[in-house]
Design a protein around this nucleic acid. Structure first.
Lengths: 230, 230
DNA sequence: GTTCACAAAAAAATCGATTATTAGACAATA
DNA sequence: TATTGTCTAATAATCGATTTTTTTGTGAAC
């Protein structure tokens, strides 16, 4: 009577999905992609219906997201989406520059030919995704994967963890901001240039370009912050 | 019939404690102070009795702690205490050095006379705590407060958040390791020296000393890792 | 002796209902 | 009119029970 689920039969699984982890993933995606308004209070009963889960797994997911920094939790008064502030974005962007350049230089030390291959592959996938702008989620996935691959061999799990966390925070701003075709084109080109600099082992140039890349993205992401007229 | 709780009548409360947040704090303390064995699987029903709470708040606390990095969560097979590994400790210690030196130099830029006063006060409290080694929890609290005060004006909430997280991770190792009177004495002295260097605005010296301080603590914390005989 | 299938037990995850707290409306008072 | 206090509806938090999944233990087949 018990039908084995696909995930459980997969090799090296062990990661059977629970309702809590599924709604965590879904909520995380929706928070980063800006499906909720900044500052909005989340009505738990609404979420319950929307994601079609019970209270317990939903609350567990919300608690995880709050600990991760994608939600604010206030005792006895529920959860709300963090506001967007230019000041916080600056903090996030500057830390991204420092952390990712740090990780990149370490990746150069440890990264081997396999790394170069993976990076080329990721860059190619991203390039293809660039050409199909209609499938936004696919592009986001390829983009994230490229940046992860770039820093993967850095050898510091905790640094990568923090970088990922900052990346998620940053993307919340970026994805809410209006696009800028000119900057976007330049950003897309930088991915290819980055990969080339890695292949040529140009450590300093790669680091400089990565910093510039984050700075340019920041310029776009800024657009998500409310401009208070002076 | 409803008797108002103390917390609610306190000025500026708004932070009414929930069962979940209380058991979160208690569990976090116990995890960092090494009350559970590394790698141990947590029996939820046991915790339930020990902390005298229901399942829901307990599970919410566990979920938060897992997202924070003080627990490992495996779908369908509960929570376990992360193992202690010399390799991870090295990662944590090296990042602490970089992050905290980073924060310190920024603190020098932004910190004013009020900062200096707070730091002196914190150093004095820590000094008094040094003299009463029997009250370990009190010393830990004063110690944490000193280090927080030292970096507080750095102006980067996210950097401070990560530093705090790494500090918690580090302390789990340190508090499990056997003490070393000689090193401990030197470490205690360094707190006073650090405060003095801040007062004298010796940026580079303070940064060097902070790095050395973390390196020395690391030397102690290492003792928590199992030595595999070769 | 090893592997496999199955049943029983244990544990994790989830649900539905209950309790406690907050926010907002409204009236009473100064 | 502003302030305070009380009531009520809405919502957050928690509990107890149920369901699902994993683990453990047993014995048969190879």
């Amino acid at each position: 009577m018990t039908i084995p689920k696909a995930a459980e039969t997969m090799p090296g699984a062990g990661t059977g999905e629970t309702a809590a982890s599924q709604v965590f993933d879904a909520l995380k995606r929706d928070l980063i992609s800006g499906r909720f308004a900044a500052g909005e209070k989340l009505a738990i009963s609404t979420l319950k219906h929307h994601y079609a889960v019970g209270l317990s797994p939903l609350r567990e997911a919300l608690n995880r997201l709050a600990a991760y920094g994608l939600l604010e939790q206030h005792n006895q008064r529920g959860f709300r989406v963090p506001p967007l502030a230019a000041e916080e974005l600056e903090d996030i962007a500057r830390l991204r520059m420092r952390f990712e350049c740090m990780a990149l230089s370490q990746a150069f030390e440890a990264g081997d030919a396999e790394w170069e291959s993976q990076l080329l592959a990721a860059q190619h996938r991203l390039l293809k995704a660039d050409e199909e702008p209609q499938d936004l989620e696919h592009w986001e996935q390829a983009h994230l994967r490229f940046h992860r691959t770039l820093l993967a061999p850095c050898g510091s799990p905790w640094l990568l963890r923090f970088i990922g966390q900052l990346h998620d925070q940053f993307d919340r701003y970026r994805r809410l901001a209006p696009g800028d075709t000119v900057i976007r084109t330049r950003l897309d080109a930088q991915h290819g240039e980055l990969a080339q600099l890695v292949l040529n082992r140009r450590i300093q140039d790669a680091s400089d370009l990565l910093e510039e890349h984050i700075r340019l993205s920041w310029e776009i992401a800024r657009g998500a912050c409310v401009d208070r007229p002076g």
